[in-house]
Amino acid sequence: MSETSLQITGLSKSFGGVQAVMDVSFSLHPGELLALIGPNGAGKTTCFNMLNGQLKPDSGSVMLFSKETVGLKPADIWRLGVGRTFQITATYSSMTVCENVQMALLSDRQQLMSFTRRASRMYRPEALELLKQVGIVEQEDRPCSTLAYGDLKRVELAVALANNPRLLLMDEPTAGMAPKERVELMALTADIVKERNLSVLFTEHDMDVVFAHADRILVLNRGKLIADDTPENVRNNPEVRMVYLGTETEEIAHA
Protein backbone atom coordinates (compact mmCIF):
# COMPACT_ATOMS: atom_id res chain seq x y z
CA MET A 1 0.00 0.00 0.00
CA SER A 2 1.26 3.50 -0.87
CA GLU A 3 1.91 6.12 1.83
CA THR A 4 -1.17 7.58 3.50
CA SER A 5 -2.23 11.22 3.26
CA LEU A 6 -4.36 10.96 6.31
CA GLN A 7 -4.38 8.35 9.05
CA ILE A 8 -7.11 8.66 11.67
CA THR A 9 -7.01 6.41 14.71
CA GLY A 10 -9.47 6.14 17.57
CA LEU A 11 -10.99 9.58 17.13
CA SER A 12 -13.64 10.39 19.77
CA LYS A 13 -15.54 13.47 20.83
CA SER A 14 -18.48 14.07 23.13
CA PHE A 15 -20.54 17.15 23.85
CA GLY A 16 -22.05 17.42 27.29
CA GLY A 17 -22.29 13.68 27.77
CA VAL A 18 -23.48 12.92 24.25
CA GLN A 19 -20.95 10.85 22.33
CA ALA A 20 -20.87 12.57 18.92
CA VAL A 21 -17.97 10.58 17.46
CA MET A 22 -16.88 7.22 18.83
CA ASP A 23 -13.55 5.58 18.15
CA VAL A 24 -13.41 6.35 14.44
CA SER A 25 -10.41 5.14 12.45
CA PHE A 26 -9.72 5.27 8.73
CA SER A 27 -7.04 6.23 6.27
CA LEU A 28 -6.83 8.09 2.99
CA HIS A 29 -4.32 7.65 0.17
CA PRO A 30 -3.00 10.08 -2.42
CA GLY A 31 -5.23 10.30 -5.47
CA GLU A 32 -8.21 8.89 -3.64
CA LEU A 33 -11.73 10.36 -3.42
CA LEU A 34 -13.20 9.22 -0.13
CA ALA A 35 -16.84 9.91 0.70
CA LEU A 36 -18.16 10.21 4.25
CA ILE A 37 -21.91 9.66 4.44
CA GLY A 38 -24.49 9.07 7.12
CA PRO A 39 -27.75 10.39 8.57
CA ASN A 40 -27.97 13.89 9.98
CA GLY A 41 -26.41 14.10 13.38
CA ALA A 42 -24.28 11.01 12.77
CA GLY A 43 -21.12 12.98 13.50
CA LYS A 44 -19.91 13.87 10.01
CA THR A 45 -19.49 17.56 10.69
CA THR A 46 -17.91 16.89 14.08
CA CYS A 47 -15.46 14.56 12.36
CA PHE A 48 -14.66 17.19 9.78
CA ASN A 49 -14.16 19.92 12.34
CA MET A 50 -11.72 17.73 14.23
CA LEU A 51 -9.69 17.11 11.08
CA ASN A 52 -9.34 20.79 10.29
CA GLY A 53 -8.62 21.92 13.83
CA GLN A 54 -11.83 23.72 14.66
CA LEU A 55 -12.61 21.14 17.32
CA LYS A 56 -10.20 19.35 19.58
CA PRO A 57 -10.89 15.61 19.89
CA ASP A 58 -11.26 14.06 23.34
CA SER A 59 -8.95 11.28 22.26
CA GLY A 60 -7.43 9.76 19.17
CA SER A 61 -4.91 10.85 16.62
CA VAL A 62 -4.97 12.57 13.26
CA MET A 63 -1.78 11.97 11.26
CA LEU A 64 -1.51 14.24 8.28
CA PHE A 65 1.35 13.18 5.99
CA SER A 66 2.86 11.42 9.04
CA LYS A 67 2.54 14.50 11.24
CA GLU A 68 0.26 14.66 14.27
CA THR A 69 -2.21 17.55 13.91
CA VAL A 70 -4.32 17.16 17.05
CA GLY A 71 -3.97 20.41 18.97
CA LEU A 72 -3.04 22.51 15.95
CA LYS A 73 -5.16 25.47 14.92
CA PRO A 74 -7.02 25.63 11.58
CA ALA A 75 -4.49 28.13 10.26
CA ASP A 76 -1.59 25.76 11.07
CA ILE A 77 -3.33 22.80 9.47
CA TRP A 78 -3.89 24.84 6.35
CA ARG A 79 -0.17 25.52 6.21
CA LEU A 80 0.43 21.75 6.21
CA GLY A 81 -1.43 21.58 2.92
CA VAL A 82 -5.14 21.12 3.63
CA GLY A 83 -7.67 23.01 1.53
CA ARG A 84 -11.25 23.29 2.57
CA THR A 85 -14.68 24.02 1.08
CA PHE A 86 -17.83 24.53 3.09
CA GLN A 87 -21.37 23.18 2.97
CA ILE A 88 -22.70 26.71 2.88
CA THR A 89 -20.23 28.61 0.74
CA ALA A 90 -17.94 30.84 2.76
CA THR A 91 -16.56 33.53 0.49
CA TYR A 92 -15.80 37.20 1.00
CA SER A 93 -18.92 38.92 -0.24
CA SER A 94 -17.41 42.40 -0.24
CA MET A 95 -14.62 41.36 -2.63
CA THR A 96 -14.41 40.39 -6.25
CA VAL A 97 -14.00 36.80 -7.37
CA CYS A 98 -10.34 37.36 -8.14
CA GLU A 99 -9.69 39.11 -4.82
CA ASN A 100 -11.11 36.10 -3.01
CA VAL A 101 -8.44 33.93 -4.54
CA GLN A 102 -5.80 36.62 -4.05
CA MET A 103 -6.55 36.59 -0.31
CA ALA A 104 -5.58 32.94 -0.12
CA LEU A 105 -2.43 33.61 -2.13
CA LEU A 106 -1.50 36.60 0.05
CA SER A 107 -1.89 34.42 3.10
CA ASP A 108 0.13 31.61 1.54
CA ARG A 109 3.00 34.01 0.75
CA GLN A 110 2.80 35.55 4.24
CA GLN A 111 2.00 39.02 2.95
CA LEU A 112 -0.94 39.82 5.22
CA MET A 113 1.00 42.29 7.34
CA SER A 114 2.10 44.28 4.34
CA PHE A 115 1.17 47.95 4.37
CA THR A 116 2.72 49.12 1.15
CA ARG A 117 1.24 47.76 -2.05
CA ARG A 118 -2.38 47.50 -3.06
CA ALA A 119 -3.72 44.03 -2.39
CA SER A 120 -5.76 43.89 -5.59
CA ARG A 121 -2.58 44.15 -7.65
CA MET A 122 -0.67 41.36 -5.92
CA TYR A 123 -0.53 37.80 -7.31
CA ARG A 124 -3.24 38.58 -9.80
CA PRO A 125 -1.84 36.37 -12.60
CA GLU A 126 -1.64 33.37 -10.26
CA ALA A 127 -5.19 33.99 -9.10
CA LEU A 128 -6.44 34.19 -12.67
CA GLU A 129 -4.68 30.93 -13.46
CA LEU A 130 -6.55 29.21 -10.62
CA LEU A 131 -9.84 30.72 -11.76
CA LYS A 132 -9.14 29.40 -15.23
CA GLN A 133 -8.67 25.90 -13.83
CA VAL A 134 -12.09 25.96 -12.20
CA GLY A 135 -13.67 27.54 -15.25
CA ILE A 136 -14.85 30.94 -14.04
CA VAL A 137 -12.01 33.19 -15.13
CA GLU A 138 -14.39 35.34 -17.16
CA GLN A 139 -16.14 36.42 -13.93
CA GLU A 140 -12.90 37.59 -12.28
CA ASP A 141 -14.01 41.16 -11.53
CA ARG A 142 -17.58 40.53 -10.44
CA PRO A 143 -18.43 41.06 -6.79
CA CYS A 144 -18.70 37.66 -5.15
CA SER A 145 -22.09 38.64 -3.73
CA THR A 146 -23.60 38.68 -7.23
CA LEU A 147 -22.45 35.22 -8.31
CA ALA A 148 -24.74 32.27 -8.93
CA TYR A 149 -24.50 29.63 -6.24
CA GLY A 150 -22.84 27.05 -8.41
CA ASP A 151 -20.15 29.53 -9.39
CA LEU A 152 -19.53 30.39 -5.74
CA LYS A 153 -18.74 26.73 -5.16
CA ARG A 154 -16.12 27.01 -7.88
CA VAL A 155 -14.65 30.11 -6.28
CA GLU A 156 -14.31 28.11 -3.09
CA LEU A 157 -12.55 25.36 -4.95
CA ALA A 158 -10.09 27.85 -6.46
CA VAL A 159 -9.48 29.35 -3.01
CA ALA A 160 -8.92 25.91 -1.54
CA LEU A 161 -6.37 25.09 -4.24
CA ALA A 162 -4.39 28.31 -3.75
CA ASN A 163 -1.73 26.91 -1.43
CA ASN A 164 -1.13 23.76 -3.44
CA PRO A 165 -2.83 21.51 -0.92
CA ARG A 166 -2.23 17.79 -0.82
CA LEU A 167 -5.57 17.12 0.84
CA LEU A 168 -8.98 18.66 0.17
CA LEU A 169 -11.74 18.54 2.77
CA MET A 170 -15.06 19.22 1.08
CA ASP A 171 -18.20 19.51 3.20
CA GLU A 172 -21.19 18.70 0.97
CA PRO A 173 -19.53 20.14 -2.13
CA THR A 174 -22.69 19.96 -4.25
CA ALA A 175 -25.35 20.94 -1.70
CA GLY A 176 -27.79 23.42 -3.15
CA MET A 177 -26.68 22.96 -6.75
CA ALA A 178 -28.68 21.93 -9.78
CA PRO A 179 -28.18 18.32 -10.84
CA LYS A 180 -26.22 19.25 -13.94
CA GLU A 181 -23.94 21.58 -11.98
CA ARG A 182 -23.32 18.79 -9.49
CA VAL A 183 -22.04 16.46 -12.14
CA GLU A 184 -19.85 19.16 -13.65
CA LEU A 185 -18.35 20.24 -10.35
CA MET A 186 -17.54 16.69 -9.28
CA ALA A 187 -16.06 15.89 -12.68
CA LEU A 188 -13.89 18.98 -12.37
CA THR A 189 -12.83 17.97 -8.87
CA ALA A 190 -11.99 14.47 -10.06
CA ASP A 191 -9.84 15.90 -12.86
CA ILE A 192 -7.94 18.14 -10.50
CA VAL A 193 -7.43 15.28 -8.08
CA LYS A 194 -5.94 13.18 -10.83
CA GLU A 195 -3.78 15.98 -12.19
CA ARG A 196 -2.33 17.04 -8.86
CA ASN A 197 -2.42 13.62 -7.18
CA LEU A 198 -4.52 15.06 -4.35
CA SER A 199 -6.61 13.25 -1.80
CA VAL A 200 -10.17 14.28 -1.16
CA LEU A 201 -12.42 13.58 1.77
CA PHE A 202 -15.98 14.75 1.19
CA THR A 203 -19.38 14.49 2.85
CA GLU A 204 -22.45 14.41 0.64
CA HIS A 205 -26.16 13.76 0.71
CA ASP A 206 -26.60 13.32 -3.02
CA MET A 207 -26.14 9.59 -3.54
CA ASP A 208 -25.80 10.05 -7.31
CA VAL A 209 -22.68 12.10 -6.66
CA VAL A 210 -21.34 9.72 -4.06
CA PHE A 211 -21.76 6.55 -6.08
CA ALA A 212 -20.55 8.15 -9.27
CA HIS A 213 -17.35 9.67 -7.90
CA ALA A 214 -16.20 8.11 -4.65
CA ASP A 215 -13.43 5.53 -4.78
CA ARG A 216 -14.38 4.39 -1.32
CA ILE A 217 -17.20 5.20 1.09
CA LEU A 218 -17.27 5.59 4.85
CA VAL A 219 -20.64 5.39 6.60
CA LEU A 220 -21.15 6.96 10.01
CA ASN A 221 -24.13 6.27 12.22
CA ARG A 222 -24.58 7.61 15.73
CA GLY A 223 -20.91 8.51 15.90
CA LYS A 224 -19.70 5.05 14.89
CA LEU A 225 -18.15 3.97 11.63
CA ILE A 226 -20.40 1.19 10.34
CA ALA A 227 -18.86 0.71 6.90
CA ASP A 228 -15.57 1.46 5.11
CA ASP A 229 -15.79 -0.13 1.73
CA THR A 230 -16.16 0.14 -2.04
CA PRO A 231 -19.34 1.78 -3.38
CA GLU A 232 -20.66 -1.58 -4.57
CA ASN A 233 -20.29 -3.22 -1.16
CA VAL A 234 -21.67 -0.22 0.69
CA ARG A 235 -24.74 -0.19 -1.51
CA ASN A 236 -25.42 -3.80 -0.66
CA ASN A 237 -24.63 -3.49 3.03
CA PRO A 238 -27.90 -4.25 4.88
CA GLU A 239 -27.09 -2.10 7.90
CA VAL A 240 -26.30 0.91 5.71
CA ARG A 241 -29.53 0.41 3.82
CA MET A 242 -31.50 0.31 7.01
CA VAL A 243 -30.10 3.38 8.72
CA TYR A 244 -29.33 5.53 5.76
CA LEU A 245 -30.02 4.58 2.18
CA GLY A 246 -33.49 3.23 2.65
CA THR A 247 -35.31 0.77 0.47
CA GLU A 248 -35.14 2.66 -2.79
CA THR A 249 -31.40 2.48 -3.08
CA GLU A 250 -31.39 0.72 -6.38
CA GLU A 251 -33.59 3.30 -7.97
CA ILE A 252 -31.59 6.16 -6.53
CA ALA A 253 -28.19 4.84 -7.34
CA HIS A 254 -29.01 3.83 -10.86
CA ALA A 255 -31.39 6.54 -11.96
Binding site: N40, E172, V243, G246, E248, T249
Partner: peptide, 10 residues
Amino acid sequence: SEGLAPVIVQ
Protein backbone atom coordinates in the same frame (compact mmCIF):
# COMPACT_ATOMS: atom_id res chain seq x y z
CA SER B 1 -35.92 17.24 1.07
CA GLU B 2 -32.80 19.41 0.97
CA GLY B 3 -29.88 18.08 2.99
CA LEU B 4 -31.69 15.03 4.34
CA ALA B 5 -30.56 11.44 4.25
CA PRO B 6 -32.29 9.34 1.58
CA VAL B 7 -34.12 7.30 4.18
CA ILE B 8 -35.53 10.49 5.73
CA VAL B 9 -36.43 11.87 2.31
CA GLN B 10 -38.58 8.78 1.74
